[in-house]
């Protein structure tokens, strides 16, 4: 694929090679999956918001979860990360079953998420936001809290790691500012840096590019690529296909709660079923001036 020849980053090459021979069908098995989900469903009243039969996420890759509004992407995210309870379903992280586990446990196991509406802890400093991400802090136990000598050394080490991360995200000059005083884009960066502070194996980003200006979007994309280069798996939700094209190694498309297509970005964007999900080919075709359908050959009509 031509897009990959210009990019020589080892993480990207590895992900590309690993996914080269994977079948481009919904629910296809991956060579080294970190996350495997089976029969995950969630119903809101009469509406089946999520009904995913099988999906696997390749380790060390950037996987995009795309789909039109209301496709169930965020709901699936909430289910997988434990923030919502499914009606049915089993899923594993590193082959360990994790369905029904509390969300904070999943975070400790290495699955960390961000939120669509950025959750910067406004009335806390940037540094405090970061330090909150560090795991296994003895000073967070109430009985140690009043004995600073039990946690001072750990605190210093965590602060060093936070400074290093903040430097990468260009926030190192803001450590004493309240997170609430940062701009919207900086909050996104802070949330991402804070998620990395947990030391995750897989980061799940819920619309990381939503409401961010084009210049910052480029910088965010760069940061997401860096996360992969460090060996961390990235799964992110997005509905803008152009963003997805640039950075993802693999794309999973959802529509009406189901996975309808999978594959590398180029292939997925040409998939008539995907175009239909986004534009609605059969209804949309009437809108074209000469009467031809928007999709060249309207074979994808399996609703």
């Amino acid at each position: 694929m031509h897009a990959n020849t210009e990019n020589t980053a080892p993480g990207r090459a590895a992900a590309y090679n690993a996914l080269r021979d994977v079948a481009q069908v919904p629910g296809s098995p991956k060579p080294d999956p970190i996350l495997i989900a089976d029969h995950v469903s969630r119903q809101f009243g009469g509406l089946k918001a999520v009904d995913v039969a099988h999906v696997e996420i390749q380790r060390g890759s950037i996987t995009a979860l795309i789909g039109p509004n209301g496709a169930g992407k965020t709901t699936l995210f909430n289910l997988l990360t434990g923030f919502d309870k499914p009606d049915t379903g089993q899923w594993t992280l590193n082959t360990k079953p994790i369905a029904g586990k509390a969300p904070y446990r999943l975070a400790r196991m290495g699955m960390v998420r961000t939120f669509q509406l950025t959750k910067a802890l406004s009335r806390m400093t940037v540094m405090d936001n970061m330090l909150l991400g560090a795991n296994g802090q003895s000073g967070e136990r109430v009985f140690n809290a009043l004995l600073p000598f039990t946690w001072k050394a750990q605190e210093r080490a965590n602060a060093e790691r936070a400074m290093e991360l903040l430097g990468r995200f260009n926030l190192d000059t803001k450590i004493d500012d309240f997170a609430g005083s940062l701009s919207g884009g900086q909050r996104k960066l802070l949330e991402m840096a804070r998620a990395l502070m947990v030391g995750p194996e897989i980061v799940m980003l819920d619309e990381p590019m939503a409401g961010v200006n084009p210049a910052l979007t480029q910088s965010l994309l760069g940061h997401i690529k860096n996360i992969r280069e460090e060996g961390t798996t990235v799964l992110f939700v997005e509905h803008d296909m152009d963003m997805v094209h640039d950075i993802s190694d693999w794309v999973i498309v959802m529509a009406q709660g189901q996975v309808i297509a999978e594959g590398p970005p180029d292939a997925v964007m040409k998939d008539p079923q995907v175009i239909e999900a986004y534009l609605g080919s059969r209804h949309g075709s009437a809108l074209t001036a000469d009467g031809t359908s928007l999709t060249a050959d309207s074979q994808g009509g399996n609703t």
Binding site: F83, A102, P103, K119, L132, N135, A195
Partner: peptide, 12 residues
């Protein structure tokens, strides 16, 4: 500030 954010960072 935000309970869900703290949960997502692995705190009970």
């Amino acid at each position: 500030e935000d309970e869900d954010a703290v949960v997502s960072l692995g705190k009970n």
